[in-house]
Each structure stands twice: as C-alpha cells, then as structure tokens.
Simulated scan of single mutants.
Amino acid sequence: MFDFINLMPEDFLNKRYNISFLNNATDMGKKIKQMIGKYSKYPQIINAANSITSGCFDEMCKIEKIYKWVQSSVTFQDDPNTYERLIAPDLALNTILQYGQIYEDCDSITALMGSLLTALGITVSVAMSKTDSTQEDYSHVYLRAKINSNGTWYYLPLDATYKENNIGYEYPSSDITEI
C-alpha cells in the first residue's frame, strides 16, 4: 500500500515535542493547527493520504477512509502526568507504518488526521472542548472537516480518539471552541 522507503524522515527521533511550556490548551490548539499546516505539505504525508484514499472521487469518501485508517491505527493512551506531549504527524505515520500501531492521545491523533486530510485539500479546524464542566481549561481536542452538503457548508466533527466513536461524534460539552 505504501512506499516505505520514501516515508522515513532523516530526523525520525527529533519529532517529539514537550508542549507543557504552552500557557493553556488554546495555545496547544494553535500549535496543532500550525503543525497540520506544516506537515500536510510533507511528501510522505501527501503520499500516504493519496494511498489511503485511493479509489475515492469525493471528499466524503476521503474523509471516511482517512478517519477509519487513523482510528484503526492509533490506540488512545494518555500522556504522562508530568507533561503534555505532541508528536509530529510524520513520526506518527512512520511509527504506524513500521509497527502497525501507535499509542497516543487526542492531540497527536488530531495532528496526524488533520495533516492527512489537509494534504488532500480538505479544510479542517481544530476543536477543543471541556470533558468536565468543572474544568477551567479545555481538556480534549479533535477535528472538524469543512464539507459541502447540497450547497450548504458545515463542519463535520471527526473525533477518532476512541475506537467506538463514529464520524460526526462530538463529546458532549457545552463549552467548545474552534481554532
């Protein structure tokens, strides 16, 4: 399915970012959005996105294939309690291609899926929500893809964090912000 030789970056080991220095979750959302823009231009991300969606001729098919591929390739695992970690989408991709699976949390999942979708020309935004109403800051991040349905544009929630989530699922929260 993939050309493994051309997918390995030279700086494979330098792609883990400790983002605990960020002031708040909104800053993290902005960092994820920046990473999506940057990594969606990487040849290995573009090649993988095209390979995953081969045979698709419309955006919804591409969204579904990327979503299912990410969801089946990434198993949710919280970051260590001492810091927040975000891995680069190309490292996530290469780890999946090498080992068949990666264990990460919602921010790395969002960065990977956002980069793959953006590489295909699909507009995405980063959504952040509070999973507990007593929290002061946002605690969960996921994507929304901009799609056109019968002439109306809207953002489709894409939260592949858990295997049981379907396309369109959005964690129940009264406090969601979009970046």
Rank of each mutant, 00 (worst) to 15 (best):
I45N: 00
S133F: 13
N23A: 08
I96P: 00
Y42L: 14
S173R: 03
A25V: 04
K65L: 06
M28H: 04
P43C: 14
T161A: 02
K146E: 09
N47C: 11
S129M: 10
T131E: 05
L158Q: 00
L13K: 12
S108C: 06
D105G: 09
T53K: 05
N24L: 12
I32H: 03
I32Q: 01
D78K: 14
C61S: 09
K130G: 07
D58Y: 11
L143D: 05
N150S: 13
A127W: 00
L116G: 00
Y17Q: 11
S149I: 10
D90F: 03
C61F: 14
A48K: 03
I109G: 00
E64A: 05
T177G: 09
K41F: 08
Y39T: 12
L116F: 09
Q135N: 08
I46A: 15
G151Q: 04
Q98H: 14
K15V: 10
I63G: 00
Y67H: 02
S54E: 15
E164F: 15
P89F: 03
G37Y: 05
Q44H: 13
Y169G: 02
K68M: 03
S40E: 01
K31C: 02
I102N: 01
K33P: 07
N14C: 09
A25C: 07
M8Q: 15
I87K: 01
F76N: 07
L13Y: 14
N24D: 15
V70D: 00
Q135T: 08
A111I: 05
D159M: 02
R85I: 12
Y83I: 14
K38C: 11
S115E: 01
Y169C: 00
G168A: 06
S133P: 05
T134L: 14
